[in-house]
Simulated scan of single mutants.
Amino acid sequence: MAAISEKMELTFSLRRKEMVQEQPMIVEVQERWPALFFQEQICEEFFRITKKDLLGVFMAATDKYTPKLLKLYRARKGAFGHEMEELLERSDERTTEIVNHRRTAALEGLPLFLREKQTNLFKKFKETEDGTKGVSVGIHYVTEVDSRAASPVIQNIAVVLEEVVVLEDIPDTSSAVAYLFGLLYALNFSYPKELRYTFDTIQNVFMELGTGCTQRVLSLKNKMLN
């Protein structure tokens, strides 16, 4: 991996120029720069661009904001329909890995709270299904084929960009969101319009990048800081 890191460091300026000026398709980037889709290299590329520790900063921010977000969700869950209520109920039912499940609930509830569709980002599919068609940006939970449980066992968590699975076997939702955000930065990938507030929050609040955020996100930020 050290040799890969050295080569990626040497070719960074060339690769960055390609991403910004040519904006290649994901399949082209995979062919030309396959190492860019390794978990370690996503983090290193993000650091080259921002000088920030992708996983370290994101996880610390998630731990900081999770209790505040869940409190906000509970206070106004009736305003967001059954999806928010079900999300919170599932989180409350967990008796193991409670911290991880609370982080997941906070992140999955973020699009809902920002008046965006949760399923535009987080999607569930059975192992036998191909859920990549039409997906520009997504985090996919791959579940057991024969599970009839209300909360089916997740076999795999994957990141999808431009209908291509670019990363899989991710240990948890928090890591998946971090890697997805890191890839969007590394690939100079525009945020999808239907998730602009969600990614605006991740960029400006969680990662503290950028010079300003939308009024909707600023309002959420103020609520979380109070």
Rank of each mutant, 00 (worst) to 15 (best):
A3P: 00
I4Y: 08
S5R: 02
K7G: 07
M8Y: 10
F12W: 06
F12S: 07
R15W: 00
R15K: 02
R16N: 14
V20I: 15
V20F: 14
Q21I: 13
Q23P: 02
E28C: 05
R32K: 15
W33D: 01
P34K: 06
F38H: 14
I42A: 09
C43D: 09
I49V: 10
T50N: 07
L55R: 07
F58G: 09
M59I: 03
M59K: 13
K64T: 09
Y65L: 10
K68S: 08
L69M: 11
L69P: 02
L70R: 07
A79K: 13
G81P: 02
E83N: 12
L88T: 00
R90L: 05
R90Y: 10
R90K: 12
D92W: 05
D92M: 11
R94I: 00
V99A: 15
L107Q: 03
G109K: 02
L110W: 04
P111S: 07
P111E: 00
L112Y: 05
T119C: 10
N120D: 14
F122I: 07
F125V: 08
E129W: 11
D130T: 12
T132E: 07
K133I: 13
K133Q: 15
H140L: 00
H140I: 11
S147W: 04
A158W: 03
L161D: 10
E162N: 12
E162C: 12
E163Y: 01
L167D: 01
L167I: 04
I170Y: 08
P171I: 10
L180K: 02
L183M: 09
A186P: 03
A186K: 02
L187R: 06
N188L: 04
Y191N: 09
P192T: 01
L195S: 02
R196W: 06
T198F: 05
T198N: 05
I202M: 09
I202R: 00
Q203H: 04
N204E: 11
N204C: 15
V205G: 00
F206H: 00
F206N: 06
E208N: 14
T211C: 02
T211K: 13
T211I: 12
Q215N: 11
L220W: 08
L220A: 01
L220K: 02
